[in-house]
Simulated scan of single mutants.
Amino acid sequence: MYRRCTYPLVLLLYVFLILEILFAVECVTDDLETECSQTSDSLKSESAPSLIPFRTDGLTRAEFCLSFAKQTSCIQATFGLTYKMDNCNNATDSEVWAHPCKALFNKTYIDLSCPTKECEDMKTITTSINMISPTRAIALKLYDNTDDRWLAIHKDITAPVRNQVIQLSVFFCKSPNTTVKVYALGMLPNVLHFQLGWFCHGLRIRKADFSRMPQVRVIQFTMSTTIAEMEPYTFTDLSNLQILTLEGEIAGNLFSRAENDHSEARSSLPDHVFEHIRRLHCACSFAWFRNFLKKKPHLTAAIRKGQLLKVGSFVLPEDDIRAPGSSANLTALSRRELDSFSISIEIFQNKWSPVLSVNCDEELNWENTQAGDLFSYNTSCYNLNC
């Protein structure tokens, strides 16, 4: 009786052991595609606090004057023009409302974008903003460029207002390591929108680079940004992430290059970065990323402007986002239709989906960016010769 009862139990244990070994082998041989390993907790030590209660009223006179001083110095330095307003804080209402920068009053957040060297006093401006309005939200643009006119990414600028920055934009990449410099800015606990773009080719991205923006809802790479290397499981620990688009404007530039031989398109999207675009969709080294997006379809789904979040006049997303395959199907248009003015405007306004759909069995060109949902970041490594 004893042997008869234990035999099925031993057999069951053997079956369980064999299944466990097979599962382990599968994880080892195809870990990136099946995502057997759990996401790391090593970057979660800095917890995500709640957003501070940002002000949602219009800018005050003092805030306007700070923004005005920054804005006019930028205009003067860039275009040789300036709009004078003697003693801004004591100007009459009629003088303020007659000023070209009066639109600043319509915002409930301060927009800081001043790349020129005359704006090296940005630290003074951000310190002043923190002193007079510590709960005023800020949209900050920084620049990473070899040209001395541009303001570099530096933590001294963000330090006084690190809790107030809700949107961080980084433009013009000096090197493939721009996101590493963003990490070096330190904790930015209330950043909701991170944007990177303009001639950012062949980026090398680490998982840690976004770990100091624990509240981030939207990450967007724009203006034909391309990625050469990305550490496995980047983005997977960002629990608040709702929108992830890494290929904004690439399809439009591919069209411009092919149809018009457009020099600007060729400078925005040079030949040597074509392989980076295909690899993101087809290479086994990025299989973890495609698998991550398959498990999180909301990250690339269509969403209306302002549908995600509103903080006063600050809205997310800033514009409508189209799902893969939902943009105008330009591949079905005739040559006459493609040459029409309306289609040119459509392309100029970047009415393509920011999530490309690539069929890895075909040549990569502008037509092969609208392959539909079937080919959107979902090529399995089981079907590739790696």
Rank of each mutant, 00 (worst) to 15 (best):
C284K: 10
D144V: 05
A103L: 08
L356H: 01
M230I: 14
T29P: 07
T178W: 03
M230D: 03
E346H: 12
V358K: 02
I75S: 07
F16P: 04
A62R: 01
I157E: 00
F274V: 10
R322C: 05
G80F: 06
S239F: 10
Q76C: 10
Y109L: 01
L364V: 03
S380P: 06
T29K: 14
E20Y: 14
T379Y: 10
E63H: 01
A159P: 05
N291H: 15
K155T: 09
C5I: 15
G197I: 07
R278Q: 11
R3W: 11
C101T: 08
V273S: 08
T135L: 00
S211I: 04
Q167G: 04
S340F: 06
I321A: 00
T245E: 08
A265Q: 04
A301Q: 11
V191T: 05
L196V: 08
I321S: 02
R4H: 11
W352E: 07
K141M: 10
K181A: 09
F54E: 00
R162M: 06
A159S: 14
A69V: 06
G372M: 06
L9W: 11
G58F: 07
C36N: 10
C360V: 05
V28W: 13
C74N: 05
S47Y: 07
K123L: 07
F210L: 06
T127R: 07
N260L: 15
K155Q: 14
F23T: 13
S376K: 04
N106V: 06
C74E: 05
D320M: 08
T331R: 11
G372I: 08
I227H: 03
T60L: 07
S47A: 15
L384W: 10
E95C: 01
N130Q: 13
T29F: 14
L241K: 00
D361N: 15
R290A: 03
S263R: 12
T226R: 03
K181Q: 12
P100C: 05
A302Q: 06
P297G: 12
T78R: 13
K305I: 06
W366H: 02
N240H: 09
F172Y: 13
Y382M: 11
T116N: 07
T124R: 09
K296S: 13
T245K: 10
D30K: 12
T29D: 12
E259Y: 06
F171N: 01
S224D: 05
R212Q: 09
D31Y: 11
M1V: 11
I347Y: 00
I205G: 01
L254W: 01
F235Q: 02
N240A: 11
S45M: 12
T82V: 12
G252W: 02
L308A: 04
T127P: 01
T29S: 11
S334T: 15
P232C: 09
G252Q: 04
K181S: 11
C114D: 02
P53A: 06
V161S: 00
I243T: 07
Q38N: 14
